[in-house]
Computed example of a mutant assay.
Amino acid sequence: MNLQELLETFELLDQWDERYRVLIDLGRSLPAFPEEARTEDNRVEGCTSNVWLIHETTDDEPPRHVFRADSDAFIVKGLIAIVLMAYSGRTQEEIRGTDIRDIFTRLGLEQNLSPNRRDGFYAMVERIHELSGAQTQSA
Rank of each mutant, 00 (worst) to 15 (best):
R101P: 00
H129N: 13
E126D: 14
D102S: 14
Y122T: 01
R96I: 01
I103Y: 01
L109Y: 05
P115V: 10
R117E: 04
A123G: 12
G120S: 10
M124N: 12
M124R: 01
N112E: 05
F121E: 01
L107P: 06
R106P: 00
I95M: 08
P115A: 08
E126G: 09
F121P: 03
G97W: 00
I128T: 05
T105P: 02
R127Q: 14
R127T: 13
F121D: 00
V125K: 03
R118G: 00
L107W: 06
E126T: 08
F104W: 13
Y122C: 03
D102K: 15
G120D: 05
Q111M: 06
R101T: 10
R117W: 02
T98R: 10
T105S: 14
R127P: 06
D99T: 04
R96W: 01
D119S: 15
L109A: 06
R96A: 15
Q111V: 04
G120Y: 02
I100M: 14
M124Y: 07
E126K: 15
F104L: 04
G97H: 13
R127F: 09
M124H: 04
H129D: 10
R117Y: 09
L131N: 11
D119I: 00
I128E: 06
Y122L: 11
R101H: 12
E110G: 09
G108Y: 00
G120V: 05
I103S: 01
I95W: 11
R101G: 04
D102P: 00
L107A: 09
I100W: 05
R118F: 01
F104S: 02
G97L: 09
L107Y: 03
E126W: 13
E126Y: 10
F104Y: 15
I103D: 04
L107C: 09
N116F: 11
R106W: 00
R118H: 08
L107M: 10
L107K: 09
G97I: 05
S114H: 08
I100S: 12
V125E: 08
I103H: 03
G108K: 01
R118T: 13
I100C: 08
E110M: 07
I100T: 12
L109C: 05
D102H: 15
D119A: 15
N112M: 01
D119H: 12
N112I: 00
S114Y: 07
I103P: 02
R117M: 06
Q111F: 02
A123E: 12
P115L: 10
I95R: 11
E110F: 04
L107S: 10
T98M: 15
R118A: 05
R106K: 14
L109P: 02
F104M: 03
H129T: 07
S114W: 13
L113T: 05
D102Q: 15
R118I: 02
E110N: 12
N112T: 00
R127S: 11
S114M: 09
G120L: 02
V125D: 08
L109H: 08
T105A: 15
Y122D: 07
F121V: 04
N116A: 14
V125S: 04
S114P: 05
A123S: 15
D102G: 11
R127A: 10
E110V: 01
S114R: 12
Y122K: 04
Q111D: 15
R127W: 06
I95E: 13
V125A: 08
E130C: 04
L113C: 03
D99V: 06
D99R: 13
F121H: 03
G108R: 08
D119W: 00
I95D: 14
